[in-house]
Simulated assay, not measured.
Amino acid sequence: MMLSRFCIYFDEVAKRGSIRRASEHLNITPSAIDRQILMMEEKLGVPLFDRMPKGLRLTAAGEVLVSTIRRWRRDLRNVEAHIDELRGLRRGEVTLALVDGSGEFVTRCLETFSRSYPGIVFHMQLTVSQGVVDRVLSGEADIGLAFNPPERHDVRVERALVYQIGAVMPADHPLAGRNEVTLSECAQHPLVGPDQGNVLRMILDNVWSQTLGELPRFAASASSVTLIKSLVMHRLGIGFLTAIDVATEVASGQLRFVPLTDVKMPLSALSLISAAGRPQSAATSLLIQQLASAMLDENVPHIG
């Protein structure tokens, strides 16, 4: 099924805030996109965008229209997926919004899932937890994985994986043979942590100051879980992550996850979410079942 050119052009401009950037992404001339928008504005009798010095911003009418178009595009994808299921083609598309730190868990699940449903295509978007919620509710993503999503009537938590933070180190580190370790013992070694402003950094700073009376001194800091793991594996220091973050490296023997014993880190939850009341495509429903089952079975060490 074909979507109207206006809907495609309008949605892309709304996402990118610029006709030029939308034209580059769609490989369509800016004049063709601008013409479609101007024609619709004339037909509706209202502007859809405020023309700003540095781009375009949706008007109230534009917000209403883009919400309707995205809902229509999502519903159309669902219809197409259901028709494909009826044909026995097992095709479809699923868009997932993910927080940093959930990627490896998701890709492990997708590896198994794609063997059963090789015709399903996945689109993954990395963002912060609030961004995951926003994209799921706007229809930009079908489902999401977020840390501690807000309790809202329009957000459905399909499954949650509860965990706590532990110390992460190379397998031959002096503390790697321990079943548990204290913060004071970790403080005797170089440390690797998340950047300032990161939620995990704020948790570590708070717990560290309460336990040891000072802030942690990091030999290196990084903006992503992947970079923190790389720094730890290259022996720049002990890192602080969850067992979810390092499951692959622990299984391969590259890293060791050691629970912290002298401090009670706040419990957190990685939650699989969808928009409450929204019909899901067959492909999305199947993937929700796969991810929820994997989260139920996941053996994640944490302090109760």
Rank of each mutant, 00 (worst) to 15 (best):
I303S: 02
I203N: 01
P170Q: 11
V250M: 03
L175T: 03
S116K: 06
M124N: 15
S184E: 07
G253S: 01
R178A: 06
G101N: 03
G17R: 05
E158V: 01
R217C: 07
E85C: 11
Q254E: 11
K264W: 05
F122K: 07
E214A: 12
I8G: 08
L145K: 05
S102Q: 11
M39C: 12
E249C: 06
A141R: 07
G144A: 07
L145D: 06
G213P: 01
H153T: 06
A32T: 03
V136K: 05
T107C: 10
L96P: 09
A32W: 09
D50S: 14
P47T: 00
T29A: 14
L98F: 14
R156S: 04
S252V: 04
A81C: 13
E93R: 15
M1A: 10
G88K: 04
R156V: 06
R87K: 09
L76D: 08
G92Y: 15
I228R: 02
R21D: 15
L48D: 02
N198M: 04
D172M: 10
D34E: 14
R115Q: 11
A275P: 15
R16L: 11
P301S: 06
I8H: 04
D142E: 03
H173T: 01
F257D: 00
G88A: 03
R201V: 01
R91A: 09
P118W: 12
L212H: 10
V133Y: 05
L215P: 10
W208R: 00
Y9F: 12
L38N: 13
L260G: 01
L110C: 05
D75Y: 13
A222L: 13
